[in-house]
């Protein structure tokens, strides 16, 4: 009984998940004004062939600061987590 219930739940959830992509039309973005602008002007404004990098480091550079800070915070978190385990190490640096 429990097994049949789990299978039924998985099937219903799976069908639900399969239905979601049917309602989304891929490749047809609703608002493409910014995309068109980047494609049309990115190369002459940033002098870079790679539009993805142009968006990452030039147009949306502030977003990249966030990414770098997240990585920095992750390293601090890992360092704090293993700090107790490392106590007594000869080459303690932090």
């Amino acid at each position: 009984m429990k097994r049949e219930l789990s299978v039924a739940i998985i099937l219903i959830l799976g069908a639900f998940m399969m239905l979601i992509p049917l309602g989304i039309s891929f490749g047809v973005p609703g608002h493409s004004a910014m995309d068109d602008y980047f494609i049309a002007h990115g190369q002459e404004q940033t002098a870079a062939n790679n539009i993805v990098t142009a968006v990452l480091f030039d147009y949306r550079g502030f977003d990249t600061i966030g990414e770098s800070t997240v990585l920095f915070a992750a390293v601090i978190g890992v360092g704090l987590m293993f700090r107790k385990l490392m106590r007594g190490d000869a080459d303690e640096n932090e």
Binding site: A47, A48, N49, T53, A54, F57, D58
Partner: peptide, 17 residues
């Protein structure tokens, strides 16, 4: 300065990127 459109790519471009 980069020419618009497809080009072989020059390392000395991109500004601060």
């Amino acid at each position: 300065v980069v020419p618009f459109g497809s080009n072989p790519g020059e390392l000395n471009t991109g500004g601060v990127m």
